[in-house]
Design a protein around this nucleic acid. Structure first.
Ligand SMILES: [Mn+2]
Ligand SMILES: [Mn+2]
Ligand SMILES: [Mn+2]
Ligand SMILES: [Mn+2]
Lengths: 220, 220
DNA sequence: TATTTTTTTTAGATTTACCTAAAAATTTAA
DNA sequence: TTAAATTTTTAGGTAAATCTAAAAAAAATA
């Protein structure tokens, strides 16, 4: 059984490993909000315990054991987020920090019964997939809204930024999960995007468009 | 905000203070499953932070601040136990250890919404009162079953021992919360108690009888 | 009251997860 | 392909929560 800190490292390394082969010390330090020297200490420990493979100066990769441990934490995090939204009426921008704490509660029975209580949900309030108890989940194919061309349309199915500020902003714009959108225009001046949602045209910045994930229903 | 460890000390000191004026170092050590030397270190820290009053060699007493902090943790612990039993179908002997972890989750919003979700329960699965959000709760007047006389009757409304082994044993004997019982006889030989429950006569040991709490409906 | 026993505290270490500053390795650029 | 910049590691230290062994205080007993 791992400490809270070890679990947080594992989860962060797992997420970083989704985008790169060798996860770098500095990247981990940034995510953990700590110093590279501290990361070096910790990755040595995690390597000793067999959660990651580590070659000095070459960064780390996850072992099967590490990946399983990380997926288990991700599963807990996302199930708790569903609980908070579905049962306790939290908003999608209010759940992340509490789930960061709840994900460390150690009880297999608890999480399996919670899963059942929630009706075995397949995705969390931000559209992220929830691994089942064997760690399996559908790797959904998202396109970033920013990458769509004029005329393309699709459904909002996820976000790649979970900060409360960002999610509240989306909420205000009406850009919530399941909404249909269409790209009307892209402004030359600042790259901002004109989108059509429920027959209403709105303008969103590039920064916002980068973090909205679309399951496209056919390119233009 | 306190650390997990500080919260555990506060809760334990609070419970010990229910039975004695000055809580002793050794008593805390026993409950915390740690050594007296460690307790001395910690009570100095808690005293510095204003949670307890501490006079060297004289033991500790809780301050108002300490009591409030402790009651808040007790409230969380008991609400989570209700959640586990009422919503996730845990048995009353399975919830304590998980609640020991859940009680440390820091979110006022979470606990208030949980309270509401559960219908503002007044007592937990073991019959212990749940403080409201202002820390108020009814100090119920219990009698230990062992103290009743032959012919006395009453309702089981609590237990003073939360171990899984004890609670499973009670369950097997049918001695659960809300059950009506009557004292039929007390055996001279070993002090065991014959009780009548649902027209069935059973025999329970002194040790068991000590930890069953009865709200008596009239002495003999 | 003097002695023994018990309780509590102090002194000095250990472990975990951090830190800063400096050295070493790697990568990028000239 | 050398020099500069960046990344990573090491060395040495700190704070929290623990420990053991020994000293000090308080309580119980003779
Ligand atoms: Mn989250
Ligand atoms: Mn999420
Ligand atoms: Mn409990
Ligand atoms: Mn309880």
């Amino acid at each position: 059984m791992q400490s809270f800190t070890e679990e947080n490292y594992l989860k962060i390394i797992y997420h970083l490993a989704e985008n790169t082969n060798n996860v770098q010390t500095n990247a981990i330090a940034e995510q953990m909000q700590t110093k590279p020297a501290s990361v070096t200490d910790m990755i040595k420990k995690l390597a000793d315990k067999g959660f990651i493979d580590y070659v000095k100066y070459q960064g780390v990769t996850m072992t099967e054991k590490g990946r399983n441990a990380a997926i288990d934490i991700v599963r807990k995090h996302r199930l708790w987020e569903v609980f908070l939204v579905d049962k306790l009426n939290f908003k999608w921008d209010e759940v992340h920090d509490v789930a960061e704490e709840l994900e460390h509660i150690k009880s297999t029975a608890l999480i399996e019964r919670l899963d059942e209580f929630l009706g075995f949900p397949k995705s969390d309030p931000h559209g992220d997939p929830i691994p089942d108890k064997n760690g399996r989940f559908a790797k959904t194919q998202f396109t970033k809204l920013i990458e769509l061309k004029i005329g393309d349309s699709g459904t909002i199915t996820g976000v790649s930024q979970h900060s409360s500020a960002f999610l509240k902003h989306l909420e205000k714009l009406g850009l919530t999960l399941g909404k249909q959108i269409q790209i009307n225009d892209v402004t030359d001046f600042d790259g901002s995007v004109e989108i059509l949602i429920l027959d209403k045209q709105i303008n969103i910045s590039r920064e916002v468009a980068k973090h909205i994930l679309i399951s496209s229903n056919g390119k233009n």
